[in-house]
Simulated assay, not measured.
Amino acid sequence: MIDNITKVSSLSSSRGLESLVESDATTQGVAPGENAGMNFASVLGSVATESMNSLKFAETKSFEAIQGKANTREVVDAVLQAQQSLNTAIALRDKIVNAYLEVTKMSI
């Protein structure tokens, strides 16, 4: 959960906001101020993909425990991580839906 939120909220520390601004966006056919490599949809897509991978990993660990290949601690850690990822995805979904509803309530 924290990892996914940190990736979205701290883009300036992980990739360097300066490098985004100073990139050669005009030579790539992208308008100035627009990032060619990352946009809102790609960030949400990557968060969703990471959440799905976490859920699949927890499921795999659960099956390994049933087969006797994984210990209980590994399964509990994987399931808790999957639960945190799912809670993060649900919270992001709720915020996006609320923002959309607020925009639709605005008068033009």
Rank of each mutant, 00 (worst) to 15 (best):
S107A: 07
G33R: 11
L17T: 10
K56W: 01
V47D: 03
K95W: 10
L44G: 07
T60A: 13
S13L: 05
I90A: 13
Q28A: 09
M106C: 06
A65G: 00
S12F: 08
V103W: 00
S51R: 05
V30Q: 09
I108T: 01
A58Q: 02
R93W: 04
E22T: 09
K61I: 10
T60D: 12
K61D: 07
T49H: 04
S42K: 15
V30F: 13
S9P: 00
Q81T: 15
Y100C: 04
S46L: 12
A78W: 01
Q81H: 15
V75C: 01
A70G: 04
K105A: 03
V21L: 15
L55A: 09
E74L: 11
Q83T: 13
N35T: 09
T72H: 15
L44I: 07
L17I: 14
K105V: 02
L17V: 11
T49S: 07
R73I: 14
M38S: 10
A58K: 02
S51G: 11
A36P: 14
I96V: 14
M52D: 12
N71K: 07
S107N: 08
S42C: 12
S85Y: 08
E18L: 00
V76F: 04
P32K: 02
M106A: 14
N87A: 15
E102G: 00
N4K: 06
S19N: 10
L20I: 06
K61C: 08
E50R: 11
S85P: 05
R15W: 06
I108E: 00
F57L: 12
T72P: 11
D77P: 02
S9K: 10
S19Q: 09
S46P: 01
F40I: 06
D3N: 07
M38P: 02
E59P: 00
Q83P: 02
E22D: 12
S9H: 08
R15G: 03
I5W: 04
K61E: 14
V43N: 09
E18A: 05
I90T: 14
F40T: 06
F63R: 13
S107G: 06
R15V: 05
V97T: 03
V43S: 13
A36N: 11
V76A: 05
L92K: 10
M106N: 08
Q84S: 15
V75H: 00
A36H: 08
G33C: 13
R73Q: 14
G29D: 04
D3V: 06
S85E: 10
S9L: 12
G45N: 12
I5A: 05
